[in-house]
């Protein structure tokens, strides 16, 4: 039952977007988010939509996967839409019932918000669909490296993230085993009231924690045996290198941002 939790949502195919430098992809995603929040005009959203469509085209991620990324937020979308619809009082009143009224402004705002959130989600999913967790970690380490000057432990943080990624499947497997073992001894995990079920988790969590600590200690020894001594003087097998396509992508991104700025002034 725990087996089908996939790690991250990396979609392993080959595409231009997949091959792009993850550092650029992270910055570009951020710029895209900035773009979406630059103004309240539908033209800006249209610009954002064009950008997302372009990125999807370059990524070869099937539409089905894009839909899958939006699906979990549908109810959040519905709630925001309803709230905006009911509480924004702006423009002609279209419909009124006691205290509740729907205005023209409410409709436009709720539509605007919905599209903005959908674009936001699709844009950031494209980053995680096309970049493996390891590359993401490497990119974050590289982007944050200026913080080393102020003694922020950038390497240690990245190391912790990648070790966490490495051990998630191992610990999931272990949880499965412990659950089976406890079930075999008559523990009921799947039914009962919420409080009972929460209590039933204790005999699973405790052995899991104990074993996680034991693993951590063994791993630390094994790492030391392989001459690990922190980030100082450490080289990497794979170094991130920017290619011409990364600069082109970045330029396109800036172009979109500039267009949005111009639109903002004009409208």
């Amino acid at each position: 039952m725990l087996k089908d939790i996939t790690l991250g949502q990396y979609f392993p195919i080959d595409s231009v977007l997949h091959r792009m430098d993850p550092r650029f992809k992270i910055i570009e995603t951020m710029l895209f988010i900035v773009l979406l929040f630059m103004g309240s005009s539908f033209w800006i959203l249209a610009l954002g939509a064009v950008f997302v469509l372009l990125a999807r085209q370059l990524s070869n991620i099937p539409m089905k996967m894009i839909w899958k990324s939006v699906k979990p937020i549908l109810h959040i979308l519905a709630v925001t839409a309803v709230l905006n619809l009911l509480f924004i009082d702006d423009g002609d009143v279209l419909f009124q019932w006691k205290l509740l009224k729907v205005t023209e402004g409410g409709i436009t705002t709720s539509l605007f918000m919905m599209i903005r959130i959908v674009l936001l989600i699709i844009g950031s999913s494209l980053l995680t669909y096309t970049t493996s967790p390891i590359l993401l970690t490497d990119a974050i380490e590289s982007l944050l490296s200026p913080l080393k000057r102020v003694k922020f432990p950038v390497h240690e943080m990245a190391m912790m993230m990648s070790i966490a990624l490495r051990f998630i499947p191992t610990l999931l497997e272990e949880t499965d085993k412990i659950m089976s073992a406890q079930k075999a001894r008559g523990a009921t995990l799947d039914n009962g009231k919420l409080t009972e079920r929460a209590k039933a988790l204790i005999p699973i969590l405790i052995p899991l924690f104990v074993s996680a600590f034991r693993r951590a200690e063994e791993l630390a020894t094994a790492m030391e045996c392989r001459c690990y001594r922190g980030g100082e003087g450490r080289t990497r097998l794979r170094t991130l290198k920017a290619a011409p396509r990364d600069y082109i992508g970045f330029a396109v991104c800036l172009l979109f941002l500039a267009a949005a700025a111009v639109l903002n002034i004009l409208l």
Partner: peptide
């Protein structure tokens, strides 16, 4: 399991 550090 306890001596492999990386995900690949």
């Amino acid at each position: 399991d306890n001596q492999i550090v990386a995900t690949i």
